[in-house]
Amino acid sequence: MAPNITRRTALLGSAGAILLAGLARSFAAEPTKLKMVIIMESSVDVGWCSTLLDSLNKIKSEIAPTIDLSWEYTDPLWNEDAENAMRLYAESGEYDIIWGHGRYSDQIKKLNAEFPDIMFVVAGSGNVPIGANQYWLYKRLHEPSYLLGMLAGRTTKSGVIGLVGTFAADDVNDQINAYLEGARFVRPDIQHRVSFIGSWSDNALAAEHANVQIASGADVVFMLTDNFKPCVEHNIMCFANISDQSKNAPTALASSAVINWEPDLRWLVDEWQKHKAGGQFSGNAEPKWFSMAEGGTDIAPYHEFDAKLPDAVKQEIAATRQKILSREFVVAVNTAEVK
């Protein structure tokens, strides 16, 4: 983006910029540079990571008037490697935010005090609160899961719905409970098959579990890992998680529970600017998550299934979604393990 255009946009958007700190300076000067490096937990074609890059691209132009956001990201790195990489980036002094996109608070704990002017970010379960300059993002997908549960309850013929989970973790259980609750709401006699593969990414094992669930009667399955072969092979309706994966199995995927990082990014940029303006970092002790109403999550479009799904069902779900967005209806966060 050429600087003169940026300046012009900044002038035009000055009314909106009132909300932002450091208005006087940004009005006249170049937008503040914000450089970020992301330590990825898995490869960038996995939803958890690809959604972050999508959100970054969206947010970049949105905040362009005041913030010149740029970012780099790594191959998957864990453990010591991740710690060494973070240290390398911290020592270089080039980065304002070091973002560990997964379980990285162990590593950050060893670094954050040494680099008090750098904002550290971690995302998801398995992290620990450190406070100070560590910010902890969290994703709760219970609301879209509830909607998918309704869809499952309305479309199942056998009355049996499945869900292939990863671990019985806090941020997995909330989804499962909401999914089942949504299904039960539209069909109280619903039966479920839920199992955990004990891995975040073992797609082959996930397929085995899905096959078992299908064999035992499930005709709608929510796959929390990315393998939809069993759905295609058995011509079963499935849902995907984290990102819209319709293109991977257009004939089987009716929708997905998706996450967006825009609210998270807005919040962090805000926090960072406060620090830049002379404030202290005050990293959250409780994991911070943004609801569907706040734009943190949603369900993906139906794509091919738009024509297949009954209008009544679509309308019912759209109405419920609206109620959630308007906070008229609240999906409870229930993290108890489903047996």
């Binding site: 379960s125 398995g126 992290n127 620990v128 969290y138 671990f167 019985a168 973790a169 806090d170 994991p287």
Partner: peptide, 21 residues
């Protein structure tokens, strides 16, 4: 080890739990 860390006696206890550690 997977058992011990995944619901077994050595599983991490905490606010939100990551399995396998």
């Amino acid at each position: 080890l997977a058992y011990l860390l995944d619901g077994g006696p050595w599983m991490e206890s905490g606010l939100t739990v990551a399995y396998h550690q």
